[in-house]
Every structure is written in structure tokens, then in C-alpha cells.
């Protein structure tokens, strides 16, 4: 049963990677690329929330850091895109670890609030300093238009770049899945059940909590770097603290227990506003629709939209046979 559904997902994912960039127009290729990068950040926040019950309200802020580092390196040195991206991921992973240090001593709301304070601080710095666009100096912000952003050699066009980003998202999902199946996953499961028990059975709670935050930061940083590669330059408006809160809210709505919940969250975050805009809905009224839908989803869907999809899919495949004890995939 599990392998069937895995195969189906793999085929579906592969088809999406091959077909979506080929058939989407210029605007939608851009929208789907953004969506994919935000899905990476959402996957990080979602896994942190379901595996450890920890809330990160700084994911979008960390994406900004990842994007900043990628742009900075791109304009300062002649490294290939991947190197810049990896360094960006390493920096945000380190930042994630740093944020985790106070997190070790805090729970629930307080932990969420300290990450929110980080996000708000980053917001202010981004607004004041903006993102490097090829000018001189450490901050590298000039007044003429941006210097070229080098993309990977085999992903120069927008469509190829969308495929490339989707591959990174798959790598991100695989990374999470590997963690889940190996030692860290077992340690996290134990910590989630009881920290006292984890400590008693010799699990290094500090290490694994820090590790989890680092992984989540890494995913956000890669997402931010990929977004920078897509747009060529970034703006502080993308990385407001309220956007970080909004992404987490959508992680809940999308359904954090399932890996495709992250995709749904990102679709809600980027595709839905794009659709509303395309349909000519007033920007202010889309906010109202968005806010109301968010409230409604939090009120009515315990496992998010992914939970509802999962229920429907399982009912379909198992002929409505004992849908509750199969265990969620993720």
C-alpha cells in the first residue's frame, strides 16, 4: 500500500517537473518558481512543527538572509550558482542553530515569539540595507539597475530554472524523509513524546533540537537563494515579518503532517494571490478573501487541506477500508 502510493507520488512529481514548465506561460513560470522556493521554506517550518512541536516564525526572514548571501556572493565573486546557494544554505543553517539556542529553553508561544522577534529585526535591517545589486562595498547597493545574476549553466531560461528549482525541492523533501527514517528522526520522536524520557534514554536533546532548527534554516536559505536566482534581485517587501507569520499560518492550513502540505501552503501563498490578481479581483479585496479563508481553514481542518486530501485518496485506494490506522505517510 505504502509503496503504491509512493510510486504514484513519484510519477506524479516527475510528470509535474517535466510538464509544468513546458506548458506554463512566462508569468506562470515565474509564479511557479516562487511557489517552489516558498515550498522549501514551508517544508522546513512544517517538519519542525510536526516532528518537534516547535514553531518558527522566521522562515521567510531566513529566506531573505539566504537570498542576501546568494546575491552578495554572486556579485562579489565568480563562483558558480550552486556554490553561492550552498554557502547561503550553510549561513542560514548556522543562523537556525543560533536561534535554536534560546529555543532549547523555551516552549510553545514563547519560542514562537522569539523567532518572531528575529523576523521583525531582519525585516528592519532588510528595509534599511536592501539587497546587493552589484554595486561596490559590503552592502553592495547601487542606484542603477542590477548587475547580472548568474544562473546554473543548464538552467538559463525561466522554464529550465523552474525545473531546476523543483529538483531542489525534491532534494529538500528527500533530506527531510531521510532524517525522519534515521537516528535524528527517532530522537525527535522521543523528544516530542517526552524530553525527560529522551534525556533518560541517552538522547542528546540539545544536539537534536539544534539540528532540527538548522535543517529548517537550511531549507529556508536554499529557498531564498533560489528565489534570488529567479528574480535576479530581491526587495525587502518580500521578507516582512508578517510574511513569515503568514507562511506559518499557511503551513497549518496546508497540513504540516504531510509532505505535500508544504506544496499546498506555498500554492496558497503564491499561486492563489496570482490567480486572484489575474481574475482582476481588487488587491484589497483579495486580502479580505485570504484572511477569511485562513480563519475558516484554521477553524475547520485539523490536519489542514493535506489531511483532507490524504483522507480522500486513501478512501479511494483502500476501498474505504479502515482509513484511520494506516498512519500518515510523513
Amino acid at each position: 500500500m505504502r509503496s503504491t502510493s509512493n510510486t504514484i507520488w513519484a510519477v506524479f512529481g516527475l510528470a509535474l517537473i517535466l510538464l509544468l514548465p513546458a506548458f506554463a506561460g512566462g508569468q506562470w513560470v515565474k509564479i511557479f518558481t516562487s511557489t517552489t522556493t516558498f515550498a522549501m521554506a514551508a517544508a522546513g517550518a512544517g517538519f519542525l512543527y510536526t516532528r518537534l512541536g516547535m514553531v518558527s516564525l522566521v522562515q521567510v526572514g531566513l529566506m531573505g538572509v539566504g537570498g542576501w548571501v546568494t546575491l552578495r556572493l554572486n556579485h562579489a565573486f565568480n563562483f558558480p550558482f550552486e556554490i553561492n546557494l550552498m554557502v547561503a544554505g550553510a549561513v542560514t543553517m548556522f543562523l537556525g542553530n543560533l536561534i535554536a539556542l534560546p529555543a532549547l529553553r523555551m516552549r510553545g508561544l514563547y519560542l514562537a515569539l522569539i523567532t518572531l522577534m528575529f523576523a521583525a529585526g531582519l525585516d528592519i535591517v532588510f528595509t534599511a540595507k536592501q539587497f546587493p545589486n552589484g554595486a561596490d562595498g559590503f552592502w553592495g547597493v547601487g542606484t542603477t539597475f542590477a548587475a547580472e545574476m548568474r544562473r546554473p549553466i543548464f538552467a538559463q531560461s525561466d522554464a529550465a530554472y523552474l525545473r531546476y528549482t523543483m529538483l531542489w525541492l525534491v532534494i529538500g523533501f528527500v533530506l527531510i524523509e531521510l532524517h525522519r527514517r534515521m537516528a535524528p528522526g527517532r530522537a525527535w520522536a522521543l523528544i516530542r513524546k517526552s524530553e525527560a524520557a529522551a534525556l533518560a534514554s541517552g538522547v542528546n536533546v540539545t544536539l537534536y533540537k539544534t539540528w532540527a532548527f538548522g535543517l529548517s534554516g537550511l531549507l529556508a536559505g536554499l529557498g531564498g537563494g533560489l528565489l534570488a536566482g529567479s528574480l535576479g534581485l530581491l526587495d525587502a517587501a518580500t521578507f516582512r515579518a508578517s510574511e513569515s507569520v503568514m507562511l506559518f499560518a499557511l503551513v497549518i492550513v496546508g497540513g504540516a503532517r504531510f509532505w505535500y502540505g508544504a506544496v499546498i501552503s506555498a500554492v496558497l501563498f503564491r499561486v492563489v494571490p496570482g490567480l486572484l490578481n489575474n481574475w482582476g479581483v481588487d488587491a484589497d479585496l483579495s486580502l479580505v478573501i485570504f484572511g477569511a479563508a485562513l480563519l475558516h481553514a484554521v477553524m475547520s481542518a485539523p490536519d489542514g487541506l493535506a489531511g483532507q486530501i490524504n483522507g480522500a485518496v486513501r478512501a479511494l485506494f483502500s476501498g474505504r477500508k479502515s482509513p484511520e490506522n494506516k498512519g500518515a505517510k510523513a
Binding site: 512566462g26 508569468q27 515565474k30 509564479i31 528574480l231 518580500t238 488587491a283
Partner: peptide, 19 residues
């Protein structure tokens, strides 16, 4: 309408110039 969002701005330009 770019709604002051840099991503929407890039998407809008892509739509008008490419599509």
C-alpha cells in the same frame, strides 16, 4: 498591478512582454 510586491512585478512584466 504589482501591489508593491517585487515578485508580482516580475510576473507582470513576464506576462506582458513574454506572453
Amino acid at each position: 498591478n504589482d501591489q508593491w510586491n517585487p515578485e508580482l512585478a516580475a510576473q507582470a512584466a513576464s506576462k506582458l512582454l513574454v506572453d
